[in-house]
Design a protein around this nucleic acid. Sequence first.
RNA 1: GUGGCCGUAGCUCAGGUGGUUAGAGCGCGAGGUUGUGGCCCUCGAGGUCAGGGGUUCAAGUCCCCCCGGCCACCCCA
Length: 444
Amino acid sequence: MLKGEVRSLTGTHDVLWPESERWERLISGFAQHVRSYGFRLLITPVIEETRLFSRGIGEESDVVGKEMYVFQDRGGRSVTLRPEGTAPVVRSFIQHRPPVPWKVWYVTPAFRYERPQAGRYRQHHQLGVEVIGSSSPAVDVEVIECAVRFVEGLGITGTRLLLNSMGCRDCRPDYEEQLRNYLAALPGSAEAREEIGGANALCEYHAATYREAPLRVLDCKRESCRRSTGDAPRLAAGLCDACREHASFVTAGLDALGVNYERDHRLVRGFDYYTRTTFEFVSPALDAAQDAIGGGGRYDGLSEILGGPAAPSIGFGIGIERLLLASDAGKGAGEGGGSDRIFVADLTAGSAQLTVASELRRAGFSVDCSFEERSLKGLLRTADGLGAAAALIIGRRELDDGTVTVKPLRGQGEQVTVPRGEMVAAIGRLVRAPVGRDAGPADS
RNA sequence: GUGGCCGUAGCUCAGGUGGUUAGAGCGCGAGGUUGUGGCCCUCGAGGUCAGGGGUUCAAGUCCCCCCGGCCACCCCA
């Protein structure tokens, strides 16, 4: 590295080809997939007022408490780079009041100030969908199925769907109180832990925080907390009738669609806004520490928390980096080269190549020019390295005769020199028929 | 934020206990063909050994700091 060389910040990365080609395929595949579920693309700013997240995600959450990229802009406002995708969508909904149910999808970077490691970055990227303005459990089923089918389609094996219900504003406080009391009464927790210690103690962190966030204890991976909550009252048992009905509609719906899931009574997601249905995808392909490739859930109260109208909603987000880490999707990227790629070898590095390239591009080919004056040998080497299907040679002779020489680089075929006017046809005979402008993916 | 491991050409890496001009493979460029790729051969460019400070006659090699990467904790995507 050169002295004083500028480089990307810790935990942020450039994605170069061929890796970027995997991203391209993943994102366009997602766009196509969610389109079949009726979602429309929503683009929102990556930067928002800090209170959008502090209020929405919850002041006590780890994300808000210690992981947000918060700073003051020149006008003295506190602004934050989005740590997740949902809150901005709800903000947008409140601001524009589109008709409900509002079904949107997004692809966005997300920022969290953490110590990076594989599958965990300060800037990562998420694909997601949200359905704003419906409390129907049928929406839950549709959203979950949408996520499941997408992940399945990538051929990732062994991925599990974990499912739980977090209750609602009516029943969850009661349950939390129950759990808090249970934890307080444990021989090893809080007050008593010094005298007794060991056996049933909560881990140090949760012993200190369980009063504020009792649910998080369920999610703790430490043996001590695991043991201590083994017989604790379960969320499912504390649900009110409405939540219970909602949950059973969801599971019945998933059953009917043949979607496999596992109930996980410990699944408690990191944002405070979740209600009722929550779910997460975990993959064994990612090593234990960061095994979640995506997740989501219902957030029926978020709109109101943010000062908007009642708008019960649900959505999910999937981490692109983790998805790519867990899958072989697109692994072969970059191997094939371009079957419609043409390299224009202009021995004079002149402007003739530009007019030729322009014509070929209009005919649908993918074209590279040779900008430096080099030997034909060197140019052909470059053409070969790019995986070009053919090279178009323009030297002194061609320039004088008004011709071009077409040299196939792959497969059979003879090199021919033809008048400029027959260039496209000549290439068309040697190389795969070009995809014309109007023959691309339909946009209907 | 805490702890552990690591950092040599664009990439992957060699460089026992400190000792002269720091190496290889791949990639890149030129040549072997007067205008013809892939395979092969030859030659070449490219490194203040991440950066800074210290110990020493002498540091890629030892010590400290710093930056970055990986791993664990925490938490999540």
